Simulated scan of single mutants.
Amino acid sequence: MTSDRLKLLICSAGRRVGLLQSFRAAANRLSMGLEVIACDLNPDNSAACALADAALPVPRCDDPGYAEAVLDVTRKHGINLVVPTIDPELLPLAQADDDFTRLGARLHVSPTSVIEVVRDKQRTSEVLAAAGVPVPRTFDQAGLLANPDQISWPVFAKPSGGSASRGLEVFDRVEDIPPEFPEPMIFQDMLRGPEYTVNMFVDASGQLRTVIPHLRMQVRAGEVEKGETRRRADLHEVAEGIAHALPDLRGVACFQVIDDPDLGPRVIEINARFGGGYPLADHAGAHFAQWLLEEVSGRPCSAHDNWREGVKMMRYDCAVYQG
């Protein structure tokens, strides 16, 4: 039985206006009524919350009560689809997946077995390498210090559980590495070359349906500001390898690749959610938002890989006014 009206909850809505607009455009193409509810720590200061049909406050996503707060919103408002947007909320929500299912809501989060891998960059590297997916050499601090000659210097360092380009460092010599960091770090080959985001869609049956890379021409605060879609068979093959390495991955995901001139493409991280650059993929014809609405509403999923190459996105600042 299909539904002609759905309620969508976008979590940690923040500045995700493009994502909200993609879902509304998808509902229009499907001739479906869609009510968009957004939640955020401070919805009064969120552009996406201001443009939603309703907005609600929730605790920080690292608060022990965060998942229950999102469940409460889902229960009270009869939400059909819950879409998280930032990495730290994925695990607490995934752990509550059965509770969302009992409420009749689709939680757009892969199982905890997937999230526990992609939220730990050390494990990501190990799992992908074991599946034959190309990754940079990766060591934890103890492993690197035990044998500094196993990697070329300088090395690239980042928090194992980090996101949004937080805590990135470069060390030229082993002597430059401090004895302690505020959080666990990983150390990798210092890659050079162009960087790509590769958006992928895995349908409810586990089939990889779409792979759409875009060149990250310019980045601000870890999010693509200028990008262009590119068809690359080698990156499609990498996406197939990731889907094989993470067989329980579902829905939307994206991964970052640096195409090193000497080593070739190397996967540096995976985000099991809508990436910040998703509106570019959507504009190019990879309508992930529509395909999720189709799955949730009981329609046949129309996912395809027929997106347009050479579509360019050039973001600019825009204001939302209230009062």
Rank of each mutant, 00 (worst) to 15 (best):
Cys254Lys: 05
Asp98Gln: 13
Gly264Ala: 05
Val155Met: 02
Arg315Thr: 07
Leu34Ala: 11
Asp40Ile: 12
Met200Cys: 14
Val83Cys: 06
His283Glu: 15
Asn199Met: 05
Gly298Ser: 05
Val211Asn: 01
Asp62Val: 13
Lys121Ala: 00
Lys121Cys: 00
Ser160Met: 12
Gly298Cys: 05
Tyr278His: 11
Ala69Glu: 04
Ala233Phe: 07
Asp176Trp: 08
Tyr196Asn: 03
Met1Tyr: 08
Gly143Gln: 10
Asn42Asp: 15
Asp176Phe: 06
Val83Thr: 07
Leu30Met: 07
His236Cys: 11
Met200Leu: 13
Arg315Trp: 03
Ile151Thr: 08
Leu6Pro: 11
Asp282Lys: 02
Cys49Pro: 02
Asp53Asn: 13
Arg220Asn: 11
Ala243His: 09
Gly18Asn: 08
Cys318Met: 13
Tyr66Ser: 10
Leu249Glu: 13
Pro179His: 12
Ala27Pro: 07
Leu71Gln: 11
Ala47Trp: 00
Phe187Gly: 00
Val198Asn: 02
Leu191Phe: 03
Glu195Lys: 09
Cys301Met: 14
Val320Asn: 07
Lys76Ala: 14
His304Gly: 04
Ser160Pro: 00
Ala94His: 06
Thr138Gly: 01
Asn147Cys: 11
Val133Phe: 07
Val109Asp: 06
Asp248Ile: 05
Ala26Gly: 08
Gly276Glu: 05
Ser163Thr: 11
Thr197Met: 04
Thr101Asn: 11
His77Gln: 15
Arg5His: 15
Pro159Tyr: 13
Glu180Thr: 13
Cys254Tyr: 15
Asp203Phe: 06
Gly206Pro: 06
Leu191Gly: 01
Ser3Gln: 15
Val114Cys: 09
Arg102Lys: 15
Ile177Ala: 00
Trp307Thr: 00
Arg75Val: 06
Gly285Glu: 04
Asp305Gly: 13
Val311Cys: 12
Leu20Tyr: 02
Leu30Lys: 05
Met1Gly: 15
Asp203Ser: 05
Met1Cys: 10
Trp291Leu: 03
Thr138Cys: 04
Asp176Cys: 03
Phe274Pro: 02
Ala131Ser: 14
Ile86Lys: 01
Gln322Cys: 07
Ala52Trp: 04
Ile186His: 09
Ile10Cys: 08
Ser110Lys: 06
Leu263Ser: 13
Val155Cys: 03
Ser302Phe: 12
Pro178Ala: 07
Ala47Val: 08
Gln95Pro: 04
Gly222Asn: 06
Asp317Pro: 00
Val238Trp: 07
Glu35Lys: 12
Pro64Phe: 04
Ala55Cys: 12
Lys121Val: 00
Val267Leu: 13
Ser46Leu: 01
Val82Trp: 02
Val17Glu: 00
Leu128Val: 04
Glu237Trp: 02
Thr210Asn: 15
Asp44Ile: 08
Val155Asn: 02
Thr2His: 10
Val224Asp: 04
Asp4Glu: 13
Pro88Phe: 08
Gly275Ala: 14
Pro159Cys: 10
Lys312Leu: 14
Tyr196Trp: 08
Thr85Trp: 01
Val127His: 00
Arg173Leu: 09
Gly33Ser: 07
Phe23His: 09
Pro111Phe: 01
Pro88Ile: 11
Arg250Thr: 12
